[in-house]
Amino acid sequence: MTPMPEHLRRATRARTEEAEKRAHAALAELVKAGKSVSFTAVARQAGVSTDFLYRSPELRTRIERHRAKNGPVPAAPADPPVDPSTSAAVRALSARLTRQQEAHREDVARLRQALEAAHGENLDLRRRLARYEAD
């Protein structure tokens, strides 16, 4: 395998540093705005891939720390005020729908966390395989 020329290494390093700066700025903006912090949100805001964020130990640690501070995604507000003119059936169905929506939000949040964890594990395994194949 031919080593990479120095000018390409410098260009790669500069591109990586610029992406890290954008990711740090995006994380700061999300925190300052009080928005939910996740790998996807930071990647979208910074214009980088989630893979890039997972591969950067410093960024990964900061995002995980902020994500842990925020806790789970806030649920929808409590039941809306009841209009006495609506029938009992409509109120019962509305309450049931609200409970189902909340359950689905919790499921989606749980699945997103599991997906992020699986993505990190997959990335780690790919790196280990690449090191093994390089030998």
Rank of each mutant, 00 (worst) to 15 (best):
S49R: 07
A41P: 02
L111I: 08
D135G: 15
F52Q: 03
H7R: 13
K32F: 06
R67L: 07
A23D: 04
A117W: 06
H66D: 10
H24M: 13
A114N: 04
H119K: 11
A118Y: 05
V108S: 03
A23C: 14
R131Y: 12
A68C: 12
S56K: 04
T12N: 14
V82A: 06
S49C: 06
L129R: 15
V90N: 01
V108W: 04
Q113R: 12
A134F: 04
R112A: 05
N70E: 15
A89L: 12
E121D: 13
A89V: 11
R91P: 00
P81E: 14
A117M: 09
A117R: 14
A41N: 08
A109W: 01
E102Y: 04
E20K: 14
S94P: 00
A88L: 11
A11E: 15
M1S: 11
D124F: 12
L123F: 09
A19L: 12
T12R: 15
T16N: 08
A68V: 15
S85Q: 10
L115M: 08
P5N: 05
P72T: 12
E121A: 12
R15F: 07
E133I: 10
R15D: 14
S36N: 05
A89D: 06
V108G: 01
R112T: 06
R99W: 00
